[in-house]
Design a protein around this nucleic acid. Structure first.
Length: 498
DNA sequence: AAAAAAC
């Protein structure tokens, strides 16, 4: 695979006009309030306009979508003809994404950029009725955004013809591979003309991604934009250690603290499991916080409603699994909280990438419990810096514990109800017991627990308590431990399996 | 240890 890297353009002096974009596109951009291209746009737009393949390392929040969508629209303009018959509207550009929400958002952007043109676009993804999608496809579109599974479904139903696709975008390609989409991707790509332009975007250039690129890209231009958040100085990262079982209370504490300080209430709280996600959302609601859960077991309608509610400000705390870690373009998230540290360090970067967009400042707060040492070490190794340890001022875990145990009991009752056939998810609030903890804002009494009663300090006997650099050094010097993955897998051989 | 995605 031959790879060329373009010299870094002087992005500061670029304007959208300077790319030679059509007036109809420029008009849409100025209506959207776009003024200056972001670095990824400055790099990608000219390259895509030239018809070159692209291997792009960029995350959401960098303006990546416009980086590929604008030049694609520009290149398709000669194909646009509003009065043409559906047969004259074959799919010319196909954009694939790993999650339904991301597909919807990419489509939303495309539609806005192409608003003043005659290009047609639509989006197809699972979890919703196929018929409206089929109708839209039958009417004809030049630009199609899709998740792989549902697209193949449409292909089988012969409601879409991909034989005229000239441009293919693989967005969040690493995620698609992680999710086992490779066979689907191969099936789809085999339906496309060999002569086409392919753009691949990925957060990482893992061996798997490189192999994918080697099979499907032709002499790609590599575009890399510095990870927006690993070294993003305007994101204040912090990790708080609490005891197992105090995590929910800690999140409540953090949210209330922010409210007290007059900071925005809007926040995404990431949880590793779907069950934990629903539970935390319920707990927050009980604590009087406007919260809602979003995860893969929610229906598509619920997912969209929740996202809408969050965007419109009706929901303050969006409690999410990693369905929301990547791609969700929620502007200017002031705060991201990791209720659980993510299993993979990559996911940490994606999660906190929800905040600190476009120079805005943001907080990325993580809850740490004993046993999370390895996860934190991995994260710090990846982002090449230590995450500062913070103290939960005035946090009273023992007082909170009683409440939490109580809520655990309630949850068990809800589980029993569910087992009897009721819907226990979020519906368990019918007969809520009243709790009086001496005031509307429950007091966080100083605790006798030595860990919580004083600020977090490094302690010699706890690996987790060492400063991050020491922890990393220790981890590195620990020597010949069995690698987490077989070497073959690291080299890109066998699929990983632990 | 998990999540995501077609029916």
């Amino acid at each position: 695979m031959t790879t060329t890297t373009l010299p870094d353009q002087n992005a500061a002096e670029q304007t959208f006009e300077s790319f030679g974009l059509d007036a109809r596109i420029l008009r849409a951009l100025s209506e959207q309030g776009y003024t200056k291209p972001t670095p990824i746009q400055a790099q990608a737009i000219p390259v895509v306009l030239l018809g070159k393949d692209v291997m792009g390392a960029a995350q959401t929040g960098t303006g990546k979508t416009a980086g590929f969508a604008l030049p694609i629209i520009q290149r398709l303009l000669p194909m646009a003809n509003a009065s043409a018959s559906p047969a004259r509207h074959p799919v010319r550009a196909l954009m694939l994404t790993p999650t339904r929400e991301l597909a919807d958002q990419v489509y939303d952007n495309v539609a806005r950029y192409a608003k003043h043109t005659d290009l047609r676009s639509t989006v197809v993804f699972g979890g919703v009725d196929m018929n409206p999608q089929t109708d839209a496809l039958r009417r004809g579109v030049e630009i199609l955004v899709a998740t792989p599974g549902r697209l193949l479904d449409h292909v089988q139903q012969k409601s879409v013809n991909l034989s005229q696709v000239q441009m293919l975008v693989l967005d969040e390609a690493d995620r698609m591979l992680d999710m086992g989409f490779l066979p689907d991707l191969q099936r789809i790509i085999n339906l496309l003309p060999a002569q086409r332009q392919t753009l691949l975007f990925s957060a990482t250039f893992s061996p798997e991604i490189k192999r994918l690129a080697a099979s499907y890209l032709k002499q790609p231009v590599t575009i890399e934009v510095a990870r927006s958040n690993s070294a993003n100085e305007n994101v204040r990262q912090m990790v708080y250690q609490v005891e197992d079982g105090h995590k929910q209370a800690a999140v409540v504490h953090l949210l209330r603290q922010r409210a007290e300080q007059g900071l925005s209430k809007q926040c995404i709280v990431f949880v590793n499991s779907k069950i934990g996600c629903s539970r935390l959302a319920r707990h927050l609601e009980r604590e009087g916080i406007n919260a809602a859960a979003i995860h893969g077991d929610k229906t598509q309608t619920e997912r969209m409603q929740t996202l809408e509610g969050f965007k419109s400000g009706n929901i303050d705390a969006l409690v999410a699994t990693d369905v929301a870690a990547r791609g969700l373009d929620i502007a200017d998230m002031p705060c991201v909280i990791n209720f659980d540290l993510p299993f993979s360090a990559e996911d940490y970067v994606h999660r906190i990438g929800r905040t600190g967009r476009a120079g805005a400042s943001g907080d990325a707060l993580s809850i740490f419990v004993p046993g999370d040492e390895r996860l934190l070490t991995d994260i710090e190794k990846l982002i090449k810096r230590s995450v500062p340890r913070g103290t939960l001022e005035g946090f009273d875990p023992t007082g909170e514990k009683a409440r939490q145990e109580d809520s655990d009991r309630r949850r068990q009752r809800a589980d029993v109800r569910r087992a009897r056939g009721g819907n226990g998810d979020g519906e368990g609030e019918d007969r809520r017991r009243r709790h009086d903890h001496g005031g509307s804002r429950s007091a966080f009494r100083p605790s006798d627990d030595p860990f919580f009663s004083r600020p977090y300090e490094p302690s010699p006997n706890s690996a987790s308590a060492k400063p991050a650099d020491e922890m990393i050094a220790a981890a590195l010097s620990r020597g010949r431990q069995a690698p987490k993955r077989p070497v073959a897998a690291l080299l890109g051989g066998a699929p990983r399996k632990s």
